[in-house]
Computed example of a mutant assay.
Amino acid sequence: MGIKMVHHVCIQTDKYKESLDFYTRILGFEIVSETENFHNREYNTWLKSGNFMIELQTPKSDDKFNKWSSLNEGPVHIGFLVENVEQEYKRIKILGYNNFKIKNGKVVYKVEGEYLFKIKAPEGTEIEIRDTDI
């Protein structure tokens, strides 16, 4: 049978309200469901954009998360495709979000001839925004 598609990514956060605001207001995800007191967690929330979902979770009671690092093994960032990188960068700036990764003094930069930028979510997840498909 095999995999049909990527269904979701689960992101854990101890900054729930800030992360929820980031994924909904800044990136435009819609809340599908928000469950309080979910298996010893304050919240477990499903967010959706197109066919892609994020499961946003708070830590279990009395647990503390390790901080995210690009030096960890496993997933390093989540990439999203937009119509126009420059317009998306301006849109996010207008919304007042400023936690962008700077490379060689620039926020929007070229990699292999393609423009992109990276933004850091409140819980530390690195988000790549690009307008060219591979």
Results as ranks from 00 to 15, higher is better:
residue 14 D to Q: 05
residue 85 V to T: 15
residue 115 Y to M: 06
residue 33 S to G: 03
residue 133 D to M: 12
residue 70 S to F: 11
residue 78 I to H: 02
residue 114 E to M: 09
residue 60 K to Q: 13
residue 21 D to P: 00
residue 87 Q to L: 11
residue 127 I to H: 00
residue 95 L to Q: 14
residue 104 N to L: 04
residue 90 K to P: 01
residue 4 K to P: 00
residue 18 E to N: 07
residue 116 L to G: 01
residue 31 I to N: 05
residue 81 L to T: 06
residue 86 E to Q: 14
residue 55 E to Q: 14
residue 119 I to N: 01
residue 13 T to A: 09
residue 83 E to R: 03
residue 77 H to N: 11
residue 21 D to W: 10
residue 112 E to K: 15
residue 93 K to P: 00
residue 82 V to C: 12
residue 52 F to H: 09
residue 121 A to T: 03
residue 26 I to P: 03
residue 19 S to E: 09
residue 85 V to L: 11
residue 18 E to M: 06
residue 128 E to T: 04
residue 75 P to F: 15
residue 91 R to S: 05
residue 41 R to F: 08
residue 118 K to S: 03
residue 96 G to I: 13
residue 81 L to M: 14
residue 121 A to R: 01
residue 35 T to L: 12
residue 58 T to D: 10
residue 105 G to E: 09
residue 1 M to R: 07
residue 98 N to R: 05
residue 106 K to T: 04
residue 124 G to H: 12
residue 84 N to V: 07
residue 68 W to M: 07
residue 32 V to P: 00
residue 108 V to L: 10
residue 37 N to K: 11
residue 48 K to G: 02
residue 108 V to Y: 12
residue 92 I to C: 03
residue 86 E to S: 13
residue 78 I to N: 02
residue 6 V to N: 07
residue 124 G to D: 10
residue 27 L to R: 05
residue 49 S to V: 04
residue 23 Y to S: 05
residue 83 E to F: 02
residue 130 R to E: 06
residue 127 I to N: 00
residue 87 Q to H: 07
residue 31 I to S: 05
residue 120 K to M: 14
residue 98 N to P: 00
residue 87 Q to F: 08
residue 89 Y to A: 08
residue 55 E to C: 09
residue 91 R to M: 02
residue 2 G to W: 07
residue 107 V to R: 08
residue 97 Y to Q: 10
residue 49 S to R: 11
residue 133 D to I: 13
residue 10 C to D: 05
residue 87 Q to D: 14
